[in-house]
Design a protein around this nucleic acid. Sequence first.
DNA 1: TTAAATAGATACCAAAAGGTATCATGTCAA
DNA 2: TTGACATGATACCTTTTGGTATCTATTTAA
Lengths: 109, 109
Amino acid sequence: MGTDIQETFRALADPTRRDILNMLSHEDMTIAQVAGHFDMTRAAVKKHLNVLEQGQLITVRTSGRERINRFHPEGFKPVFDWLGYFDGFWDDRLSALKNAIETKDTSDD
Amino acid sequence: MGTDIQETFRALADPTRRDILNMLSHEDMTIAQVAGHFDMTRAAVKKHLNVLEQGQLITVRTSGRERINRFHPEGFKPVFDWLGYFDGFWDDRLSALKNAIETKDTSDD
DNA sequence: TTAAATAGATACCAAAAGGTATCATGTCAA
DNA sequence: TTGACATGATACCTTTTGGTATCTATTTAA
């Protein structure tokens, strides 16, 4: 568990889910709020949110009857780690980025 | 055409294809050579290579009856560009990486 | 308390994805 | 030229994926 890179890559492979990530990076949103931006049912959006949660790209907290989805940038770490295998192709400047991610990871909420 | 980000993310979403990319980052390989590393048919490997080519993550050249697959790191550019939307979350150190990619892009072979 | 709002859970469906098997084509080498 | 080899192209199958519809549960507010 934890850093299942496959789940993260899978989560990123859908355009709707990438759009959702962009939206959530600006503000936390409930399922209904996210669904309001798409021409699809709330159930379909919920499925996408489930996939994003499995990929650890969002976290979810419950507030009353609402389910609030929050962007979780630390979830990108396995992706950057994987990209790191190709260091030789883009020098080693990738490590700076990886450090940036890892530093961010120390914050909690 | 050109930089279809969806095709690139799609190509990265499969573990076999990510393995293939790692292999090709070390040396160019024919279809048969790639297939030799997996417990699946040559046709299946060929499909994966097609997806990687559509995602612009590899290039293909023909030499006689052989089809030689080459890692194409520039294909990652749309991915890094997309990640750039989240600059605010990991400072702006991502731009260093993007510059690295773009610089590499000027090389030919 | 009761009605409306938010969300969860299933069942179901069509299309895409990952894979195999098979046959056709082009190429190297004796 | 002829046979073996590397690949291309289809057809087909199964599972996963993205989506809808429907029903249930919980929570808020009048």
